[in-house]
C-alpha cells in the first residue's frame, strides 16, 4: 500500500482528507512506477483526471509537482520507479501545487 498526499484543492475536489492510500503494488509486482501510482489515483478518484496531468498528452501540468523522500520526481518519466520507502508506506508520494501569491 502506498500513501499519496494531495494539495488542498484536490482534496476538496475528491472529497478526501490530506492523504489517500492506494492498493499498490499490484499482486505479484515488486515495484510501482510514478505513472502507475498516478493512474491508480485517477482510477480511484476520476474527478482528478486532468488536474495533475493533461488529458490529451498525459504530461504533468506546469504548476504541479511530484515529490518523494525529499526528491523532486516531477521531471522523471512515467516509468520512473518510486523509492522503496514509498512502496513500504513509510513515506508518502507528495502531489504539490506550485507556490504563488502576492
Amino acid at each position: 500500500m502506498i500513501r499519496v498526499e494531495l494539495p488542498a484543492h484536490l482534496r476538496t475536489l475528491a472529497g478526501v482528507g490530506r492523504e489517500v492510500a492506494l492498493d499498490l503494488p499490484a499482486d505479484g509486482r515488486a515495484g510501482v512506477t510514478l505513472g502507475e501510482a498516478l493512474d491508480a489515483l485517477e482510477a480511484r478518484y476520476p474527478v482528478l483526471r486532468g488536474t495533475m496531468r493533461d488529458h490529451g498528452t498525459g504530461c504533468r501540468r506546469a504548476f504541479v509537482r511530484f515529490f518523494a523522500c525529499k526528491e523532486d520526481l516531477s521531471h522523471e518519466p512515467p516509468d520512473y520507479p518510486l523509492p522503496e520507502p514509498v512502496l513500504r508506506g513509510s513515506e508518502p508520494l507528495l502531489v504539490v501545487g506550485a507556490v504563488a501569491g502576492g
Partner: peptide
C-alpha cells in the same frame, strides 16, 4: 494549477456534482 472542472447542480446550487472536464 489544476485546470478545468465542470460542476453541475440539480437543486439550484445547493449541492454540486463534478461533470466531465475533457
Amino acid at each position: 494549477w489544476f485546470g478545468q472542472q465542470i460542476q453541475r447542480s440539480d437543486d439550484g446550487g445547493q449541492t454540486w456534482q463534478s461533470a466531465g472536464n475533457e
